[in-house]
Design a protein around this nucleic acid. Structure first.
Lengths: 306, 306
DNA sequence: GCCCAGGCTAAAGCTTTTCTTTAGTACCGC
DNA sequence: GCGGTACTAAAGAAAAGCTTTAGCCTGGGC
């Protein structure tokens, strides 16, 4: 029966693309591996299949008689793969809060795809799954921690006041109890379902500060938007650090009050992979990577919270 | 890039032949292995590809859209395999003395092909290679032992008088020194280049027997032919036991004189595999099997020789 | 002519895939 | 109801396949 399928595939691709290197890139394996595939077939047949020449690879005479068949065969297999959506296995569909996707996941995904080229991501808002085969692979949410086995707790958040560096300096120049007077308070609704996450009125009371009408101010649904307002000196907000570590680290965002004035959320970001989806090696790799990146974020948060 | 080639092959074959069992037979693997291949693809895609029904397997609706492409693809791959002589790897070409082939190898090959179906043999006389790709895979000869690594010493031979049971009884009824008078001596040239292998004159002198004109009698080139003559009561011959063990064991050939009257050859049957050909797993298996069968023949010869 | 970069190859070792075996289930025909 | 055949799941062993390292070869540029 027909054997050496991988060798034939490597061979056909090497000839079509003109080099073992380009075939390797297409197959996401090393050139050495492509060379081994081709050589194994040559050893098995006891003849040369490629002429390694001056301007790359060319099929040998022995191979030429089979090459048209090979081209057609792999073209048809590509068509079958397309029909079956075989590449689906290399795609990872993630539904996540858009704040998480934009501020935390997207900046980091380059590290994953550098390790695993050939992976394509489709990232959508929560509940915003495309009409494709089956539901999304990975769903990330912020809510009460679940302990079912398919959930991974990514990280809780540490919420405290955030401002622009300019506003931080101006606040520091004031007396302690008057520090919030004269600065607009921006309200972020992202954490409102979390009993542990403070809103301005509770925070001000807890810190024994003075601020008239603390419940007043613009409300924002999304962290991304309130962050933009803060960056524009529009005011202060209470915000979790987890998603904005990059902005804090490069000092585009600043902490106008001591770190100890913050509070951990009781809710957490968590992921849920569909049970069957972890049969795919690419998906297991992604999950492992995600868990590792989140461990780093937890570490950074612990250092920030003191 | 295209993956799951083995799964797609198993899938296409299972649908085409109507069962996992028949696909397994065609692929020379177990039905369990075929089932695993198909299931791996189904898990990967997150959908069913086969309907396991009352009258065998049918493609699911998901698979139907790809099936024509798969059929064409594997038909083209079969054509490419034919053009490349890919099945060549499952063929083993042996050049051996026809006596060895007929009396020793052919009766035993059934044991090999029972273990390794899908292997086809092409056995020719020594030096009688077909005009095919490259020389023969395995060459067996009888000659001075070689110690180059590509040679395996199969077995030496143990040469002594051989007759039909009827002639053995008639010889035993005679007096000791007259036992060869009246019986035609048949001469076998197979061992004539071996200084240790006795011919009739030397054997008679060594045994201190009496026989007028011991050099007279019909000469045979081939063991097979002289054996047929002996079986027909045409006379006695001096012959090695190695290739005729079956005839001796079922008593169609007999030893008219004690076993101790025999002599080991200094030459030996030996095999030589072309260096590169042992890259093929089928060839390694054949070589291992051959060496093991020959070890059994050596053991039998040792018991016969005392 | 020399040097550097890119491509290929061989070998070793590790990881992943694939297969066999065992045991069990389901279905069909008698 | 029983026996036979086909399929499936799980465990473990064997084989295949890949990466990494080191080295060689070729071609182009200086």
């Amino acid at each position: 029966m027909l054997s050496h399928l991988k060798s034939l595939q490597a061979l056909e691709l090497a000839v079509r693309l003109g080099s073992l290197k380009q075939a390797a890139d297409a197959l996401s394996i090393t050139p050495a591996a492509v060379g081994q595939r081709v050589k194994a077939l040559e050893d098995y047949l006891g003849l040369d299949l490629l002429e390694r020449g001056r301007s790359g690879l060319r099929p040998s005479q022995s191979l030429s008689v089979a090459l048209a068949h090979l081209n057609t065969a792999f073209r048809e297999l590509d068509a079958a793969a397309t029909a079956l959506d075989l590449q689906r296995g290399h795609e990872i569909h993630v539904a996540a809060p858009s704040d998480f996707a934009e501020l935390w996941l997207a900046p980091r995904l380059g590290r994953f795809t550098a390790l695993h080229p050939n992976t394509r991501f489709s990232i959508n808002g929560e509940g915003d799954a495309p009409i494709r085969i089956g539901p999304v692979d990975c769903e990330i949410s912020f809510g009460p921690p679940r302990d079912e086995p398919e959930y991974d707790i990514l990280f809780r958040d540490y919420v405290l006041p955030i401002s622009s560096p300019e506003n931080t300096r101006r606040i520091a120049a004031l007396g302690r109890r008057e520090r919030l007077e004269g600065f607009p308070l921006l309200h972020l609704d992202f954490y409102r379902n979390d009993p542990a996450a403070p809103a301005w009125p509770a925070w001000i009371k807890a810190q024994k500060l003075k601020r008239t009408a603390p419940e007043r101010g613009i409300r924002f649904q999304r962290i991304t938007m309130v962050v933009e307002a803060v960056l524009a000196d529009a005011g202060l907000t209470l915000c979790g650090l987890a998603l904005i570590s990059a902005l804090v680290e490069d000092k585009r965002l600043s902490l106008p009050f001591p770190k100890s004035t913050g509070a951990w959320t009781s809710h957490a970001f968590q992921s849920r992979f569909r049970k069957d989806t972890l049969a795919r090696p690419q998906m297991r790799r992604f999950r492992d990577w995600l868990v590792a990146e989140c461990a780093e974020t937890r570490l950074w948060l612990s250092r920030m919270a003191g």
